[in-house]
Amino acid sequence: MQEIEKTLRSRCAELINNGTCDKVIAWDRGEFFYDNSPATFACADCAQKLVYDCFCGANLSKYLIQYAKEGKTAVLLKPCDTYSFNQLLTEHRISRENIYVIGVGCDGMVDIDKIRAMGIKGITAVKEDGEDLVVSTLYGEKTVKKADCLLEKCVSCKSKKHYVFDELIPEADGEDVKENGRFDMVEKLEAMTAEERFEFWQEQLSKCIRCNACRNACPACTCRKCVFDNPHSGVASKANADSFEEKMFHIVRAFHVAGRCTDCGECSRVCPQNIPLHLLNRKFIKEINEFYGEYQAGETADQRGPLVNYTTEDAEPTAVSDRGDN
């Protein structure tokens, strides 16, 4: 990764100097080694500070709605982020001509919480060393396998290929990942009885603190005013009563992003209570694939999603009951 980071820094500086863009949206170093923040870099010297390592999980595409309105903005997108970018283009939330996309190669981003969950505390630095991560802590040094602490979205990465870019760093692009196992857990949930499944979701969703991080991070949640922010809607965004509010919120959200969710994994990544929200979205994706044929939101910027398109071949609403679902 160090090599890519160096190339990115000099290339971004060059793009600012030669007028291709006036700023770059990338990641900035935090206090520790795992807490990079999205940031804009508006001068060639500043661009020398951008960071690209295994803690760049945040998907930068949604920031473009706000920060690429004027001028020309360059953005670093990992393969999974490019789907979100295309989806934003499809929905006319961003303008292609204002943005210069640098597709960055990715071999998986790390979830610091997974390292913590291994009982490793007081983490002051993390270094990549081949397949391993060397973790320095207040209590000594530990080595872990990088593969054991990838973000959920990276464990089931669907593609290493960029679906939109102006240039790639490194130049060689990756391939789709066919065997990604991303529906395995959905299948497990489907195999449960209705009661077991209810219990699973009740336990998870009752942890929700209604912080709305999942919604705010989601590149498919781009309504100018969310219904849950409308005090007159009767579904206020803040109450965390587990009898109604949380489930209502999550079900409405999952329905609303159905067919538009690219499975970028941001919702689960940002949730402070580690609720596996991606499972709701993946259930919808799986259903759409089954009822309407394989569909990947954001693969291109000009496709009509199956749920906003009508064809005479469409599944009948009775398809679900015919299948015998409970």
């Binding site: 999205p38 940031a39 920031y63 603190i209 209604r210 912080c211 109450a239």
Partner: peptide, 25 residues
């Protein structure tokens, strides 16, 4: 700029004390 405007920091914070009053009908 990077802030998502979510409620995470305020809701996990031991001292943030603002509240809202609402009706549920």
């Amino acid at each position: 700029k990077s802030c998502l405007g979510c409620g995470t920091c305020t809701y996990v914070c031991p001292t943030c004390q603002c509240y809202d009053i609402r009706d549920y009908k």
